[in-house]
Nucleic acid binder design. Sequence first.
DNA 1: CTTGACCTTCTAGTAACTAGAAGGTTTATT
DNA 2: AATAAACCTTCTAGTTACTAGAAGGTCAAG
Lengths: 136, 136
Amino acid sequence: MQIGAVARKSGVPAKTIRYYESVGLIAAARREASGYRSYGDPDVETLRFIQRARGLGFSVRQVGDLLALWQDRARHSAQVKALSIEHLAEIEAKIAALQGMRDTLEHLIEGCQGDDRPECPILADLAGSSGAETVK
Amino acid sequence: MQIGAVARKSGVPAKTIRYYESVGLIAAARREASGYRSYGDPDVETLRFIQRARGLGFSVRQVGDLLALWQDRARHSAQVKALSIEHLAEIEAKIAALQGMRDTLEHLIEGCQGDDRPECPILADLAGSSGAETVK
DNA sequence: CTTGACCTTCTAGTAACTAGAAGGTTTATT
DNA sequence: AATAAACCTTCTAGTTACTAGAAGGTCAAG
C-alpha cells in the first residue's frame, strides 16, 4: 500500500503520516524500489489508534507512550490508567479555565446594550473600571 | 519609565511587551537617547487592558480590534458586543469538545482496573475494539 | 511521448510567546 | 578611573502539531 491508500483507510492525511514519521511517532516505513513508502494493514491500525488517541486530546508525545504500551504485552494497565488520569486532569483544568472565561464574558455581554452608543461594560471591564472583574 | 518598570506595573513581561510591539499590537515606543524604550502611565493602562483581554481568551488579533474600539470615541457598543459574542461561541465550542473528551476518558478510566495486568479498556478502545467509541 | 495521478524532499507559515546569546548603557561603589 | 550590577538592546531559535506550497521523480494509460 502506498501512503495515499493508507491515508484514505486510516483517515490520517498523507502529510500527517510523513510528519508522524519525522517526529518518530511511527517507525520509518519500508520503501518500494521507487522510493515510495510502503505500508501494510497493521500500519493502518496503528494510525487509527493514533487518530483516536489524538481525538481524546492526548499530545503526540503521550500518544507515543500509549502506543508503546499498546504494543507491550507485558504492560500493566496501571500505567495506561495513570497516563490517562494525568491527561484527564489537564483536560479538566482547561475546561475550568474556559468556563471561567465564559462566565465572565457572558456576564459582560449581557450588560452590553449592543447599540450605536459607545458606552460598553465589556470595554469598561477590560479597562479595569473595577466593575465585574476578569475572573479571579 | 523603562520597559522593566512598565512590565512590573502592568504585569506583562518585558519580553512580551517587545513582542506585542513587534507584531503591531501596540505602537513602537519612543526611545531615550540610550536607545531604551520609554513609556508613560497610559502605556501601563493599555498593557493592563491587553492583559485582561488575553485573560478572557481573546486572540492577540481580537485584542487589537478591542483596543481600537476602546480608543475610538465614536465606537458602537454593538461592535464590541458582536466581537465578544463571536469569541464566546469559540469558547463554548472548545468547552464542548473538551467535555466530550473528558466524558469518554472518564468512562474508559473507570473501566480500567489499573493493576499489573495488561488488559485495559482504554487501549482496547483506542485500538478500535468497537467498545465505547471515542465520542461521536 | 505526454498527461495525470501519484509520490518524494524541503522550506516556511501558523499562535503567542519564551529562552538564551552577545553586547550596549547606566548607576553605584571601590 | 575601573569595575560590577542591573538594566537595556537585537536576533535566533524553540515550543505544538500540523499544513501549504514548491520543485521534481515515478508509473500506468492513451
